[in-house]
Structures are given as C-alpha cells and as structure tokens.
Amino acid sequence: MREIDVSKITDALCEMCMSINYELSDDMKKALKEAQQKETAPLGKQILKILDENMEIAKTEKIPICQDTGMAVVFLKVGQEVHFIGGPLEDAVNEGVRKGYTEGYLRKSVVSDPLLRVNTNDNTPAVIHYEIVPGEDVEITLAPKGFGSENMSRVYMLKPADGEEGVVTAVVDAVKLAGPNACPPVVVGVGIGGTFEKAALLSKKALARPVDRASEKEHIRKLEEEILEKINQLEIGPAGLGGSVSCLGVNIETYPTHIAGLPVAVNICCHVNRHIVRTI
C-alpha cells in the first residue's frame, strides 16, 4: 500500500491548469505546424499562421491561448494499492482547479446551476471521472474543454445494421453541422459502443489521446483515416472560411456493446485541444 497526501493532487492540478492553457502538448503543436504546410487555400494558410503567432504569444507572455479556458475535465486513474490521506480526494481536485484558474488568470466559466446560472467565480467544480486500476500510482489527465466545440458535439444511437458506413456518415455529419462554430481545424473524438453514456465518455477520452497516436486496432485505425479524409473533403477550412485542412485528427475509442445497439458519440474539439498528463 502507498499513502498519498491529496495535497499532491491539488498541487499537480494547479500547475497543469495553468501550463496547458498557455502551451499545447507536443502532438497538437506538431499537428498545427503540419497543417500550415498542408493547407492550400491562401486565406486558410494565413489563418493558420495567425494561430501559430497566437500560440507563441501565449507561451512567452503566459496569456491563455484562448479566452475560453474551458471547464476542467479530470480523469483520475487510481491504483488500487493507493490510500489517500489529508482529506477528501474530490475536494483536493477542485482545490487544484480553483487555485490554477485563479492564480493563472484563467477565465471562470462555470455556473453553479444550469438553469439559475450564477457564476461560481473559481471555475469549479471540475467534471471528474475516476477509474480504479492495478498498481500504486495515480495518473491525472486534465482536459479543459471549450464550449464552442462542446456545444457542437452529439450522440447517435445507430442500429447494428447501420454498421461502419453509418458511423462514418454520423461523424462526418456532426462535423459538417459544427462547421465554423467549433473553431476549425478541429480534432474529433469518437466513442463507439458501450451504452449511451459510455460512448460519450469514450469520445471525451479519445480527445485526450495524443492526436498523432492511432488506434491499436487495425480496423479502427482504418476507420480513423477514412473519416479524417472525408471530413477534410468538406473543405470547412481554418476558422470555417474554406480550405483543405478542416480536421487535424480523428481518434476513436471502442467498447463492447449490446446485440441491439451501435452507440456513436462525437465529441468535437477546436484546434485548442488541451490535454496534459501527470503521474504521481
């Protein structure tokens, strides 16, 4: 058994909130650089250059890349040999988010009730997903999510007979409907299988996976490539103003499902696809 003081989780999250809002992970930086080479439309190229300059300013001056610094989505993989001390884990997570968003001059974008809509003024609570795994480590993944693109995400409950073709159509349709609103070039996280909520969770996890890491399953990897190509054929382009680069990557996660169903969740993320991992 390993004892971990929850203050370590707070400290880690505080730092993660700040750093990922000032500088994207290497996979995203690489994808955006490559996009500049690939884009053929002059206006599209110009916009990608602006995004590149923006990232440089954000990094050097510690100004958030985007003003929507997101709602904090936290995935905690907790080793089952871990014993937490020093207080409730959930409070520690929220304290990390509170500190990070306050000390890092990040935007407070969370309201305490979806209908009454009063700002909590510290960007808490976070959306927390726990997973118990073997071992004695704690892996924290933080993925602050902007809502321009979150609002364009959707879940489809397809029929088994719809098959692969149905999945492709559903995902491409979702991205088409999102169009300029999701701040393209987008990254698309897809969850296929499980139940209604499992598919949605998988799609969020898919977004947190590095954009240059393809699925390990052969047939899924092919599907990722096919969907990426079809989305780019839509020519939505950077900022939705037309161009050859509409999507930087499609990540798919799957899970076994019911004989009667084919759930497909499409979580769309903008080019400011923030994800960061720390292990304690």
Binding site: I50, N54, I63, Q67, A239, C270
Partner: peptide, 13 residues
C-alpha cells in the same frame, strides 16, 4: 465580422 476563434492572446494585443 468574424474574428479568428482561438487567437485570443494575439487579439488581446
């Protein structure tokens, strides 16, 4: 008018 989404650091200047 459309401004470039996700370029908030640059636009702040």
């Amino acid at each position: 008018l459309a401004a470039v989404g996700g370029a908030g650091a640059l636009l702040s200047k």
